[in-house]
């Protein structure tokens, strides 16, 4: 046991002092909404396996204002995740060389965001087509 009490600088709120890290914490924080949303879907899937009454109870619960409110925040969080995912993709993927030139960052980000819009519209179209 040592009587030394070395000074350890507090790290409390370190990220709040720099806008760059505030943004970082927000985009990392979107994972909480991704996890919670996956949890809601998982609960629904288990209810589906339990039968029609259980499924309908889960479906009715989604109309609860708390769930609707959560999904509004989750929509914002996932849209932000989507935006930042493609914004940092030029730095998270290996460099792409086209005709001896490195593909510019905005092409990768723009391409990713365009792919997200197209994939989302396809998903909506497929859901629409399946139930119509």
């Amino acid at each position: 046991m040592s009587k030394r009490r070395p000074y350890v600088r507090s790290m409390d709120g370190w990220w709040r002092r720099n806008p760059y890290f505030v943004e970082y914490m927000i985009h990392e924080g979107t994972a909480l909404f991704v996890a919670a949303y996956a949890g809601i879907l998982l609960a629904g899937l288990v209810r589906l396996a339990e039968g029609e009454a259980a499924w309908n109870a889960w479906l009715a619960a989604l109309k609860n204002p708390w769930y609707v409110g959560f999904h509004l925040f989750a929509l914002a969080a996932l849209a932000y995740h989507s935006f930042t995912w493609f914004k940092i993709m030029p730095r998270t993927m290996p460099p792409v060389i086209v005709e001896g030139q490195r593909l510019p960052a905005w092409v990768i980000t723009g391409g990713g965001l365009a792919a997200a819009v197209v994939a989302s519209l396809i998903l909506l179209g497929v859901v629409w087509g399946m139930v119509r």
Binding site: Y37, L59, H71, L75, S82, W85, F86, S120, L121
Partner: peptide, 30 residues
């Protein structure tokens, strides 16, 4: 996967279907 379709999935299962927006009412029927 969540960057590509996450926002639309949340919109469909969490907002459009419970609130009866845009999609048919029985979209997520049993």
């Amino acid at each position: 996967l969540s960057a590509l379709i996450g926002p639309m999935l949340v919109f469909i299962t969490g907002l459009a279907v419970p609130l009866g927006l845009l999609l048919p009412a029985d979209t997520m029927s049993y």
